[in-house]
Design a protein around this nucleic acid. Structure first.
Lengths: 205, 205
DNA sequence: GTCTATATTTAGATAGAC
DNA sequence: GTCTATCTAAATATAGAC
């Protein structure tokens, strides 16, 4: 009986934790850490404030959990760059995947943007650790292709930075883009074509 | 006598207002609007908290003043694009100027980044108004050059977005860039060369 | 596990002496 | 104009009933 009760509760717990993280993602991505309140998170999650703090000990706790949980997903497209693949396809595929992340997960993009802007208090060791390692690996792959003459030579890390900047910009600065373009534009559709052309021109050896 | 007293006081007023705005720029750019406190601003300005609120009625007031004061300076390089100039030089000059702004004025860059991320509550009418107008003008100039075959044809507004994204990224995501590059790198020097090459390749007709 | 009520802290803003 | 002291509101977190 006790064996049965535990999983049932755990399932509820899991669901409530998910509700909280989902609501918190919305709120944090709109207002940043300091701008967000536990009250807003609770409302977004459909729970009471004390109940939210029953599942997570503190607002800080929720935030840290979100960041670390989502980081892997956020970096996944870079890890998938295949050294055995066709260089141009691989890079263009990465650009496309990253832009698609901005389109589908703008909240995650803004969550990270706030965190980095603030000096990455919760991610400092990760930035200089695993992130740096992942970038080094990808940069080495790119450098290898350049050395083989299969890709226009350039600084591979700044090439990666450029992809981050150009794709995340469409999520993070969405308000500005929409204001400048005016109605009747799908910024992401336009960006997809623009970036495809940009990187094709840039990278063709 | 009264005629003399007024300017002297005004000079002090001006100096204190400047001190406050200078301190506030530092604090807001580090923590965002909600993360910043009037206390921190006062300390950064070397004044007492009530004194800060004597010169500016509210924290919100300081923030709005900063944004509107700095916006012109921030957009100046785009306005300077000269339709009578040499297309490639003009665009490369704009890129260089914008990157130089990121290097010299990272606080301003982050101030705007926070504001846009948050949905630009203080800049909404400006975004859809004068900013859009300025971009439209620059885009028309670019489009004209493209029509004349003096610049590779592409969406001129997304070309502008790309310049914003690529240059501001180095100020706004500075922590991440430094963590990934490690010590011994001058990110801005490297960026200058990288972006010069990127836009040269992209734009050569 | 979930709620109401509340303690506690922080921060924006003001009063009033000097 | 500038300060000390203080008011007030908001927000994090907890206590304790159910």
């Amino acid at each position: 009986m006790a064996d049965q009760a535990q999983p049932i509760l755990t399932r509820i717990q899991q669901k409530n934790r998910d509700l909280i993280l989902e609501g918190a993602l919305t709120v944090f991505s709109e207002s940043g850490f300091r701008g967000a309140t536990v009250d807003q998170i609770a409302r977004a999650a459909g729970l009471s404030k004390p109940n939210v703090l029953y599942y997570f000990g503190s607002k800080d706790d929720i935030h840290k959990t979100l960041l670390t949980t989502l980081l892997d997903m956020w970096l996944a497209p870079m890890v998938r760059i295949d050294p055995a693949g066709e260089p141009l396809d691989e890079v263009l595929g990465y650009v496309r995947a990253k832009l698609e992340m901005s389109r589908r997960f703008p909240r995650e993009s803004r969550l990270f943007a706030y965190e980095i802007l603030q000096g990455a208090p919760h991610l400092t060791e990760i930035l200089g650790g695993s992130l740096r390692g992942i970038v080094d690996t990808a940069a080495a792959t790119l450098q290898g292709w350049m050395d083989q003459g299969r890709l226009t030579p350039m600084d591979p890390r700044h090439l990666i930075f450029s992809i981050w900047a150009l794709t995340q910009h469409y999520a993070d600065f969405d308000v500005q883009i929409r204001a400048v373009l005016g109605p009747g534009h799908d910024a992401f559709d336009e960006a997809e074509r623009f970036l495809e052309n940009l990187y094709r021109k840039l990278l063709e050896a």
